[in-house]
Computed example of a mutant assay.
Amino acid sequence: MRTPKSRALGRALRQAREDNDLRLRDFAAKLGRDPGMLSRWETGERTPRPDQVAQILALLGVNGERYEEIIRLTEGTRASQWLALTLPEQREQLNTLVDLEQSATTITEASPLLIPGLLQITPYIRAIMTSGSVPPDETATRIAIRNGRKEVLKGHNPVRLVALVGEAALCQLIGSPEIMAEQLRYLLDAASWPNVDLRVIPFSTGWHPGLEGLFQLIESKNATPVVQLENRRSGLFLHEDDDIDPYRRAIEMMLRVALNHIDSTDLIARYANRWETAL
């Protein structure tokens, strides 16, 4: 089974080969492997042993920290969960998240306290990172990655986004009233896109599963569904049915208590007006 971590390993191997300007068939011959097998390794459909990965990296001249990072990806590729605690592994998870989003058909994001990542505008993102003490030399790169991820919502065959937004995200000041007004006006625009189902869960609902924290369910036609969670110190990917099902049920519960499309946009518009009058 193709797991998020096996995808990450495959992507890292493919990137290392492409960095050396080697075509897959040519490198397979150099490696003494069947091109089909090498292709399956690079897509994550099959997982090479650590010694096979070491051989690949040696032939490609990969060494030092990058060598160690890729070798660590061979550990637990078939495990039911992928927990990333170190910064290098969290970066690999981010790369895998981008890959998953680009091949997804539907993304459901539950975001009780902040605007969902795929719907955040640049000033809103920058305000979060500045308040979160992200080093200035990393801010521009992170903003570019976040904005690049939003491209999945556009184009010929855009992903379907179901955004379950807590009312708290509409009234929590991030940056300035001007930024909040611009962000909520952008939400109203996004809500009109045919591939975006934006639903607000009001304060009056009481408890619902989204209050337990942000999560994202990513579904694709030819891949196992993945749930992605993150906090300040770690990231977690789940892909087993027993782990995915509780999040599916949580989404069903939140959809039942969320406002419909018209009431959601009305509430967003009211908060946008409040922020504009606060300027």
Results as ranks from 00 to 15, higher is better:
L198Y: 04
P123E: 14
T108L: 07
E18N: 10
L214K: 00
L60S: 02
M129H: 12
P177S: 03
E65F: 05
L153T: 11
H239I: 10
D99M: 10
A272K: 00
E178I: 11
V200P: 10
C171I: 11
W41D: 00
G10R: 08
P225I: 06
L198H: 04
A104E: 03
D245G: 14
I115P: 05
W41M: 03
G36T: 03
R274N: 12
N20G: 04
A79S: 13
L85S: 07
N260G: 13
Q216R: 15
P194Q: 10
R14T: 04
R274F: 11
R146L: 06
P136G: 04
D137I: 14
G117L: 11
L238I: 11
M1K: 03
L119P: 03
N222K: 05
K30S: 07
S192D: 09
R17Y: 02
N157T: 11
I251A: 06
P50E: 09
E65S: 14
A104M: 07
R248P: 02
M1L: 04
G44Q: 05
P209H: 14
P4H: 05
Q15Y: 09
H156T: 10
M129F: 13
R49W: 00
L118I: 11
L236C: 08
L214H: 05
N273C: 14
Q183D: 00
V257N: 07
E75M: 00
I179A: 02
A16W: 02
L153K: 08
Q228G: 12
G213W: 13
K5A: 14
R199A: 06
E69G: 07
A28V: 07
L94E: 06
T122R: 11
M254H: 01
S131H: 08
E240N: 06
A127L: 09
T265Q: 08
Q216D: 11
I201N: 07
R40H: 02
E18I: 01
L187Y: 01
T224Y: 03
D137R: 12
